[in-house]
């Protein structure tokens, strides 16, 4: 037998003995784990706000929440990290379904193993095994944004519709919501739709190209994604600031500080604020109640976390409205969405 082969056999035998001994010696008690995991797909302002919601719930109710941040916003990365947490023994998960349909397998696995799982941020596909999804109503938010833009245009004008990732399941919903609003207003039409944007840089390039090519035709811009909103707000603030330039109206989505600053200064018009804090806070609250034995009133419930149109008038006070919506939903959890545990 060669030296390598002898060494391999010894190494494998040592490994088996080591692992076997560790398994035998390990105390049966489980490691102390936080009862709830709030999983954030990647470092991102939206995710940071969701995480703050989870931490606030932990502080307010004395329930430990482990906030975990993933490396990429892909379903594969979400699944691999959640499975690792699952094998450690965590019992309750708040998960952002990066791919609303692709999360089905992961949710099925967690549910089948008796773990609690709540979706936040986006609605998973019908049939996914989760009792709750805490999210902004995508269609309603896109409709509100489009209607706000139509009002800003006084019912007359041509719109540049900027969509985000073409592989995001919310994109077709947003697109159809905007088209439905435009169809209701004969004086408004879509001059061009640009999409397949995943980064701020790509968004800037595409929007700038469209504005350079058809700037005279475009009266308003609508963005229904975070990165596109930031890029468009910065570009339009630059454009509208120029003396003599035609004022291009704008409505975006999400509340990046740069977008809020542009609204505050009056260079762009509005954005639709979602409730990421509520996504984190409410999903942790639901998981906590499920852990305590509370029973969902139906197999699946969509919890609309609310959205607010932010303009120059309410740019410094809209957060109060969002927090009020969160408090109202929280107060309703035990009556509207859950039933008390038997004997509770």
């Amino acid at each position: 037998m060669t030296r390598n082969n002898r060494f391999l056999l010894i190494a494998l035998a040592a490994l088996i003995v080591c692992l076997g001994s560790i398994k035998l010696l390990q105390q049966r008690r489980a490691a102390a784990l936080e009862p709830i995991v709030l999983y954030l797909p990647l470092p991102h302002p939206y995710c940071t706000a969701v995480g703050k919601g989870g931490e606030a719930y932990s502080r307010d109710h004395g329930v430990s929440v482990r906030v975990v941040v993933g490396q990429e916003s892909t379903q594969a990365n979400v699944s691999t990290n959640i499975e690792s947490l699952f094998t450690l023994g965590y019992g309750a998960f708040a998960v952002y379904p990066v791919d609303p349909a692709g999360a089905k397998g992961l949710f099925h696995r967690l549910h089948a193993a008796g773990r609690h799982v709540v979706a936040y941020g986006a609605e998973p596909e019908r049939g996914t095994e989760t009792p709750f999804a805490v999210a902004t109503d995508t269609r309603r938010a896109a409709t509100a944004a489009a209607e706000k833009l139509v009002r800003l245009l006084n019912g007359q004008g041509r719109i540049l519709d900027v969509l985000e990732s073409s592989t995001d399941a919310n994109t077709p919903i947003r697109r159809s919501a905007i088209e439905a609003v435009v169809a209701r207003h004969p004086g408004v039409s879509i001059a061009q739709t640009v999409g397949d944007v995943t980064t701020e840089q790509k968004a800037r390039e595409k929007i700038e190209s469209a504005l350079v090519a058809r700037g005279d035709e475009i009266d308003g811009v609508i963005c229904t994604g975070y990165t596109t909103t930031v890029a468009a707000a910065l570009l339009l603030a630059e454009h509208n600031r120029r003396s003599g330039a035609k004022r291009i109206r704008f409505v975006g989505l999400d509340t990046d500080e740069r977008v809020l600053a542009a609204i505050r200064d009056g260079w762009v018009d509005a954005t639709v604020a979602q409730n990421p804090f509520g996504h984190g806070y409410l999903s942790c609250a639901l998981l906590d109640l499920l852990r305590q034995g509370w029973i969902p009133r139906s197999a699946y419930t969509f919890v609309d976390s609310g959205s607010v149109v932010v303009t120059r008038e309410n740019v410094d006070s809209f957060q109060g409205g969002i927090e009020k919506a969160t408090a109202e939903i929280l107060a309703e959890l035990k009556t509207k969405y859950l039933r008390a545990p038997a004997g509770g």
Binding site: A101, G102, H108
Partner: peptide, 16 residues
């Protein structure tokens, strides 16, 4: 295999 595993054929498969 990934589609069978996740219960879904998502176009963003392969991005990473």
């Amino acid at each position: 295999l990934w589609a069978s595993w996740s219960g879904n054929a998502a176009p963003q498969t392969g991005d990473d």
